[in-house]
Amino acid sequence: MKVIGAGFGRTGTASLKAALELLGYTPCYHMYEVIQQPYRVRQWLDIGEDRARNWDEVFAGYQAAVDWPAASYWRELADHYPDAKVVLTVRDPQRWYDSVSETIFASALAERRPLSPRRRVIRWLVARRSPDFALFPQMTKATVTDRVFDGRIDDRAHVLKVFEQHIAEVEAAIPPDRLLVFDVREGWEPLCGFLGIPVPDAPFPQVNERAAFRRKRPRRLFRLIVRGR
Rank of each mutant, 00 (worst) to 15 (best):
I122K: 04
V181C: 05
K161W: 10
V100R: 05
R119S: 12
R128K: 14
R128S: 11
E102C: 07
L109A: 06
A142V: 15
K141N: 05
V144I: 14
D132G: 06
M139W: 11
I104K: 00
V144E: 10
G187A: 05
V144P: 09
L88Y: 02
Q138V: 10
P137W: 15
L191N: 12
L88S: 06
P200S: 01
Q165A: 12
W96M: 01
V159P: 08
P131R: 08
T143H: 12
R113C: 05
R91W: 01
R123M: 06
R113W: 04
G151T: 10
F163E: 01
T89I: 09
P131V: 07
I122V: 04
A168T: 12
R152L: 03
R152S: 00
P175V: 11
T145W: 07
R118S: 06
F136S: 07
D155L: 04
Y97C: 01
R147M: 10
A142Y: 15
I104G: 00
E171S: 14
M139G: 14
L88G: 03
L125A: 15
L179I: 09
T145M: 08
P200G: 01
P114M: 06
A142Q: 15
R129S: 14
P200A: 05
E171N: 10
V90N: 00
F136K: 06
P93R: 04
F194P: 00
I174W: 02
V170K: 02
P198Y: 04
L88V: 05
A127C: 08
F149K: 03
F105S: 02
F133Y: 14
Q138T: 13
H166R: 13
L115V: 11
I153Y: 03
Q94W: 01
R156H: 14
R147W: 11
S101R: 01
A142M: 09
G151K: 07
V100Y: 00
V162Y: 10
L180T: 07
P117H: 12
H166P: 09
C192E: 12
R95M: 06
G196V: 02
A142C: 05
D177R: 13
A110R: 08
V126D: 02
P198R: 04
A134P: 14
Q138R: 15
L160C: 03
V184A: 13
W188H: 07
